[in-house]
Design a protein around this nucleic acid. Structure first.
Lengths: 138, 138
DNA sequence: CTTGTATCTGTAGCGACTACAGATGATAGA
DNA sequence: TCTATCATCTGTAGTCGCTACAGATACAAG
């Protein structure tokens, strides 16, 4: 008695609900080739399996971490070709982390400038403003 | 003997050099209406005056601080109509600062996740990877 | 006057979606 | 079985803030 855990296929709508990825985005991912072309019902509606659900979840999580679709594409390529090493994935991730650190650094600089400007501002109902003076200077 | 400090008009190229804003970007700003249509030479080349130079500098500085073109448009509108109060400008700026703080917060969260994942990763030349395990889980 | 550089207009592309329109597919109730 | 309603289909265009052309004209130096 073989037990085949055949999960029933998901429509794009239910896949969308289960992953939190919007329907048009799923179709977009297919169009740009990071999601595979799924099976179709007789009428032509997309039907997704468990593997595709996992893949989309991977993409979503990676996007939430700020990976670009190109970085995700590259990771998925390595996975698909079953020809990756931990070192390779780590390199991509490390690069991305460095990127994020840089962004934080830039934003903190901007934050300081903004705070500084705002601290010089009277915030009164008067028609002159230290912020404008700073931004217009020179 | 009147001394009229008539600064000679700038071509788009020299304006670009003086402000560090790229030529196509200057034309783009004109197209979307945050830079005014400048005078033209007999042949039709754009000629900018001191006020326009200052305006473009304002835009550049604001962009460097991460203001959106819509926020900049709004600030310039207030300035152009000479009908702004310091409080209004401060409100826009405060809103923008809040935005930046939020972005930093989000990025720091991502940074923590990334560090966490990378710390669990062997980074070895082996075909299995803790990072992928995490991203694919569920 | 020629040569070379600057500028002109207009359009298309980027990334990562989102938002339609207008046509079908699927499904539940009468 | 019919029908009403929803889901899904394809294809295109829009978003933001530029950037990159192509092909034509303007301008400045020698």
């Amino acid at each position: 008695m073989k037990k085949v855990t055949q999960t029933k296929p998901l429509t794009i709508g239910s896949l969308s609900k289960k992953t939190g990825v919007n329907i048009e985005t799923i179709r977009y991912y297919e169009k740009i080739g990071i999601m595979p072309k799924p099976q179709r019902s007789d009428g032509g509606n997309r039907l997704y399996d468990e593997g595709q659900f996992k893949r989309l979840n991977f993409i979503r999580r990676s996007r939430e971490l700020g990976f670009s679709l190109d970085e995700i594409r590259e990771m998925l390529r390595l996975v698909d070709e079953k020809d990756f090493t931990c070192a390779e994935i780590a390199a991509i991730s490390q690069h991305h982390l460095d990127d994020i650190k840089l962004k934080i650094k830039d934003l903190r600089k901007i934050e300081r400038h903004m705070k500084n400007m705002l601290s010089q501002c009277s915030r009164k109902e008067t028609p002159d403003c230290a912020i404008l003076d700073i931004l217009f200077q020179n």
